[in-house]
Each structure stands twice: as C-alpha cells, then as structure tokens.
Amino acid sequence: MTVMSSDGPVRSKGGSVMSERQRMILGRLLSYLTLGIAVLLILFPVYWMVITSLKLPREIYRVPSLWPKAFTLDNYYTLLFDKNFLHPIFNSLIVATTVTVISVIFSAFAAYSMVRFRYRFKGVIGRLILFAYLTPGSLLFIPLSILMAQLGLSNSLQGLILVDLAFSVPLATWLLQGYFRGVPRELEEQGLIDGLSRMGALFRIVLPLSAPGIAAVSIFVFTGAWNELLFALVLVTSESQRTAPLALNYLITSDVLPWGPLMAGAVVSSLPLMILYFVAQRFMVQGLTAGSVKG
C-alpha cells in the first residue's frame, strides 16, 4: 500500500469500481460466512441432540420442531434412575482413563527410543507399529476375543482395556514420534551436560516441550477408547461391565427408538469428552520450542 493510496479506485473485471477498503470488507464477510456455515454444519447435530433430549415423547414423534413447546427433564430421569446410566459412564471413565494413561506412558518411551537411539531392526519395528495401527479392528475382533477368553479376561473391564491398548499404543507411538522429532537434539544434550540423566532429559525437557503433542495424543486415545463399541459388544456380556456406548446401544429394545432417553444418553456421554477437549486445548498452543535454537 505504499505505491497506491489505500482508497484509490481499483477497477475489477466486471467494470464496477470498488475501493480497496470495500474489497477488504467483502473479503472479511465472505470468510465469516464460510466459517459460519462450517460451524452450523458441526453444531446443528449437537443442538438437535440437546433439544431432543429435552422434549416430551409426543413432541419428539410429531413434526420435528426447532424449539420445544415444553421443556422436560423426564428423559434424563429415566436414563439416570431407571436405566442407571451413571454406572456405564463410570465404567467408560475407568476404561478410557486407564487406556490413555498407559498408552501415553508406554508410547512416550517407545517413541523416544525410536527417535533418539540407534539399534538393530529399528526400521522394521517402526513399520510393524504402523502396520498394527493400520489394521482394521473388524479384522481382529474374533482373534482378540478368543485371546481374551483364553486369558480369562472376557467380560471384564481389564480385558477391554487390554484390547483398546492394542490399538491405541501404536497410534500414540506414531504420533508422539513426530512431536519428539521436533524437539532439537541439542536441547536434550544440553540437559545431559547440565546434570540430567537420559530419563531426566526425557521427563524434564522432551515431554514438557512436547506438551501439545501429549495433549493431542491423549485426546485421540481417550476419544477412541470412550467411543469404542465393537469390542465392548463382543467382549462384554454382563450388564455391570457395560461401557457408555454399549449401554446406549442397549437402550434400544424394540423397533420404536426411545429417542428421548437415547439423546439424553448421548448428551451425558459427550460431557466428559467436552470437558477433556476444553482442558487439553490450553496445552495445544503451538511453538513451545520457539527461540531455543537458531535456525
């Protein structure tokens, strides 16, 4: 804008005259419009879920309306007290949290070794990890359920945790490798010289600087374990061991779907995830390593 004065006319192809400033405003409007549409696409199902969970059955089955005539908490009452939905939520919390914690710890070590050390078969191991991560669960649920039965872990949360880990550890390892690579080697070496051990360097330098990565991986793993349905369906048989998606699934008992309680269940099940996303978002700021090394 040093050559042309900022509101000098610019002739567009159509021949209309638009000032630079008007163009800028138009550009802004267009980007907000696009973003708005995207937000709407994402939020509308969420809105529908919440609003349905607050409607009375007769209203749900009538012509759908964007705003309920009467609000009710009946669906939540049914869900939480008649169906005892807090118990599967609690089970899910145990499974997802355990899977997340174990995955992050395990894969942090694995990823660190893959990134920093040189040893035999490292390349092969790396490819095997990727391969394990890419194998679809639907291919593995029969062998895995047989395996769990033989281990005496079927119909238990431990068994479910173990199976979830088989999928989340490779994924987490793969993701963390990328974040660890972003931590300059010299930083860690400086740590070693300053008095840290290898472990110390991992915990005090590499992990803090990979916090966005750890947060992202935790979210991924937690969400995956939280939403997991297939293996829970295969492995868990008794009501006391049901996880939230499974319990939600068992709400459907006839051809007529109980939309109210279902949607209430969906709301309750997504609350922990929303809280997690909100917390983890704070760690996802980029550029933690800025300024550490020149280059």
């Binding site: 010299e186 930083l187 010289i193 840290l196 051990s197 800025a290 550490s292 090394v293």
Partner: peptide, 18 residues
C-alpha cells in the same frame, strides 16, 4: 556427560525455551 564437569556451548545455543 553430567559427571564430567564440563560446559558446552552449541552452535545453535540450545537454550531451554520454557
């Protein structure tokens, strides 16, 4: 390294960013 009582200055400085 920590037991050798040395100090090192790296080409890219390697300052702890945090």
């Amino acid at each position: 390294p920590r037991a050798r009582d040395i100090a090192m200055v790296f080409q890219n400085y390697a300052l702890y960013p945090h």
